[in-house]
């Protein structure tokens, strides 16, 4: 029973980070109809920025609770990156075929991958002091790191906040209107340019937050973005591109399958995930919650 509970918590841990990444990806697609192949790298930027700032402030000393305030640094860095990318690289392409939009984000993926190497070097960064400082708790006869629970809680809060933001605020209404019919929204006086910028920045903020909260637990390595992107793809394909409920459900499913996959069928764990995505696409091309 204890092992089952621990597996379940791990699944939730994966799911909350995945939701943050995939939710951002889905939000961007939902509003702008762009599949951002560089989204995984934005997540990596969040992880690196947080790890770097924690290392900077800590400087070999004892971790203090104030260090946890540095977690959002990654999210803010990622959001700033998004706010630069959208107007400079994506805006000129909205009227062009979607092949070009995919290609430019692929180019961006290559650039960001090396930019991380350029800024932070080829070696992994870690912020494990934040992870270790919280200690662990005992579940039955097993030990479980407390920090993992923090990640799960942050993921849950982020999901709730996003839901409230999209469905309970005026900005959310405008965002959804633009997503449903960009021309109509524009005709009704919505500044679509600004909405696109905000949506892209918000999506990047979420990915960066995902990277920032997981980095104390896993560290930041080169290549983490590309791996995360593919998992986020699986999530949004299952849940439906452009749907946040779908991203939540998809993240939970992928989290559970991954965790139990690693435990029980490690050889085909990844294959099963991609296969799940392919099957969902075949049966419901728009995903479980998506609309074509």
């Amino acid at each position: 029973m204890d092992t089952f509970l621990i597996h379940l918590l791990n699944a939730l841990l994966y799911a909350s980070v995945l939701f943050l990444i995939a939710g951002g990806l889905s939000l961007i697609y939902g509003v702008m109809r762009i599949v951002n192949l560089a989204h995984g790298n934005v997540y990596a930027v969040g992880a690196y920025a947080t790890a770097w700032s924690v290392g900077r402030v800590l400087g070999g000393g004892q971790p203090s609770p104030a260090l946890y305030l540095l977690l959002p640094v990654g999210a803010v860095a990622a959001a700033a990156l998004g706010a630069v990318i959208e107007p400079t690289l994506l805006r000129p392409l909205y009227k062009r075929a979607e092949e070009y939009q995919l290609l430019i984000t692929f180019g961006l993926l290559l650039i960001l991958e090396d930019l991380l190497r350029f800024i932070w070097g080829p070696y992994p960064l870690s912020a494990s002091s934040l992870f270790e400082a919280l200690g662990s708790l005992t579940i039955g006869e097993s030990v479980y790191p407390s920090y993992n629970l923090v990640v799960i809680v942050v993921g849950a809060i982020a999901a709730a906040a996003l839901w409230a933001f999209i469905y309970k605020t005026k900005f959310g209404v405008i965002l959804r209107a633009t997503s449903q019919n960009m021309r109509m929204a524009s005709a009704l006086g919505v500044n679509v340019k600004r909405i696109y910028l905000q949506a892209f920045t918000l999506g990047c903020f979420m990915a960066g937050l995902g990277g920032a909260i997981i980095v104390p637990q896993q560290g930041a390595v080169l290549g983490m973005g590309v791996d995360a992107l593919i998992l986020a793809f699986v999530v949004v394909v299952i849940g439906g591109l452009g749907s946040l409920e779908g991203a939540l459900l998809g993240a939970l499913m992928v989290g559970v399958v991954r965790e139990f996959g690693i435990a029980f069928f490690p050889e085909v764990e990844l294959a099963v995930l991609y296969f799940m995505a392919a099957v969902v696409l075949l049966i419901r091309p728009a995903g479980l919650f998506g609309h074509v």
């Binding site: 690289l89 392409l93 070009y100 290609l103 180019g107 961006l108 650039i111 090396d114 190497r117 350029f118």
Partner: peptide
């Protein structure tokens, strides 16, 4: 060592300038 960046910049320029 930053060859990916070179390729990425070429690709971005290609899409923007020489589609």
């Amino acid at each position: 060592v930053y060859w990916q960046m070179v390729l990425g910049v070429v690709l971005v320029l290609l899409v923007l300038v020489l589609p």
